[in-house]
Design a binder for these strands. Structure first.
Length: 435
RNA sequence: GUGGGUAUAGCGUAGUUGGUUAACGCGUCAGUUUGUGGCACUGAAGACCGUGGGUUCGAAUCCCACUAUCCACCCCA
């Protein structure tokens, strides 16, 4: 079969047999966030390019080489969102949401686009769940946001994610630190890799993150941010740590976490795993106290995180986590002949109104083939309607797992009663299991 | 952007000293006597062997290029 074209590079289809996993993850994240007071916000897939240049930072890799940017027919420069925070914050500002009681708490479930080389856990179109908490500058807000991420992982049954924490200070003390770093690395300039030589001027903190063995070795002796942050930033960081301790959330301080987006200040954190390949960051976030002001609003401190849904799914599959199982067909109503087909269609519609998942023949198959199909659907019950049944007003309903056949009156209420009585045991069992 | 692996029906695979109709499993569809699934059996559909060049009498098989995909670097979720 000749297909016109394949899906674009780095994109992925989610097939009907897999979509329930996505629905489960999405619903769980949304629900848990709701318990923490975060309500969903939706905003455009594309924004003015300027928004990302300004907020994400025009020296970052994301902006410099990974954005899907194009000119629309009105001559505007438009960019497919490479992340969620910029758009969410823009929407929050534009709609005046910060005029209500603060903090403003919002969650989002979005697709993002980055022109990168695809790899395990890295796609060109990928999906994120994230939250923003604006108007709360306290370390307590950081702790709550981190606790929410943790709660979502727990609810999904994910284990063993390591929380790594760092503070990169505020713009004032970070300038001090940059200076110290430049001095240190300048002394080792010859041993640095080429990219790091470039980073020396633009963003020396990135050198700390370099995987090149030579750079990593030099970085070991480099000044540590935490030694340079100002008293306020230090107090914030210490407060966060003790708050996490109080909540029983384990973490390690990792001074090399830097984050690739410019808007971060003070707290930065990641939840990482080693089980799904090289792209082990499942969730990343931090504080961005200057972002709203940068976008033209009043100075408003904010925190948030984003988690990669594809990576979350990889971790869950790797760990054998359960997903809410797909709903199986409750009843298959087969038929022989046109009159019976009509009757079956009517009954099917009626039982669907009752909230049952019911199927009937749409192909015109033989009785035997219809039964096979019912079996493939995993139908709990089946029956076959023909002239005899219509005349007698009764139908033989088969319970597929046991093969038992019961004669039931051919009407909506009788069938509902039958289904109810034959599934009540399972409902009770299920309730007991979930208690 | 830089490396390395891979590319044969929907899925998973076989197919080397290059030689006629490209094989197998799963899946799909139909049937195995009259209106009842799972097992078994029979049969059918389904492949321009990634694309384009080249070598050769002859290429799924050898060579080159391209593309896609996977993994890693990089970057990040």
């Amino acid at each position: 079969m000749a297909i016109i074209t394949n899906a674009p590079r780095g994109t992925q289809d989610v097939l009907p047999s897999q979509s329930y996993k996505w629905q489960y993850i999405e619903q769980t994240a949304l629900d848990i966030a709701r318990l923490h007071g975060f309500r969903e916000i939706r905003f455009p897939v594309f924004e003015h390019t300027e928004l990302f240049n300004r907020s994400v930072g025009d020296t970052t890799d994301v902006v410099q080489k990974e954005m899907y940017t194009f000119e629309d027919k009105g001559g505007r420069s438009i960019t497919l969102r490479p992340e969620g925070t910029a758009g969410a914050m823009r929407a929050i500002l534009q709609n005046g949401l910060l005029n209500d009681a603060l903090p403003l708490k919002a969650s989002y479930l979005i697709s993002c686009f980055r022109y990168e080389k695809p790899q395990a856990g890295r796609l060109r179109e990928f999906h994120q769940f994230g939250v923003e908490m604006a108007g709360a500058g306290s370390y307590a807000a950081d702790a709550q946001v981190i606790a929410l991420a943790k709660a979502i992982f727990d609810a999904l049954g994910i284990e063993g994610l390591a929380l790594e924490l760092n503070s990169i200070g505020c713009p004032t003390c970070r300038a001090e630190y940059h200076k110290a770093l430049r001095e240190y690395f300048a002394a080792h300039r010859d041993q640095l890799c080429d990219t790091c030589k470039g980073r020396l001027e633009k963003n020396p903190m990135r050198i700390l993150d370099c995987k090149n063995p030579a750079c990593a070795e030099i970085a070991k002796g480099a000044p540590v941010v935490l030694d340079y942050i100002c008293d306020d930033c230090r107090a914030h960081f210490e407060g966060l740590k003790s708050n996490l301790d109080a909540m029983g959330i384990a973490y390690t301080v990792n001074p090399t976490i830097v984050r690739g987006l410019d808007y971060y200040t003070r707290t930065v954190f990641e939840f990482v795993t080693t089980g799904i390949g090289a792209q082990g960051t499942v969730c990343g976030g931090g504080r961005y106290d200057g972002l709203i002001e940068l976008l033209g609003g009043q100075p408003t401190p904010s925190v948030g995180f984003a988690m990669g849904l594809e990576r979350l799914l990889l971790v869950m599959e790797q760990q054998g986590c359960g997903f809410a199982p797909e709903q199986k067909c409750t009843m298959y109503i087969g038929s022989i002949g046109a009159a019976a087909q009509q009757k079956a269609a009517g009954l099917t519609a009626a039982l669907r109104e009752e909230g049952f998942y019911v199927e009937c023949d749409a192909v015109g198959r033989s009785v035997k083939a219809q039964m096979k199909y019912a079996d493939k659907l995993g139908a709990k019950f089946s029956c076959i309607l023909g002239d005899n049944e219509i005349e007698a007003g009764k139908v033989r309903v088969k319970r597929m797992d046991k093969g038992e056949i019961t004669e039931v009156a051919l009407d909506r209420e009788a069938l509902v009663q039958y289904i109810y009585h034959n599934t009540i045991d399972e409902i009770v069992e299920y309730d007991q299991e979930t208690k």
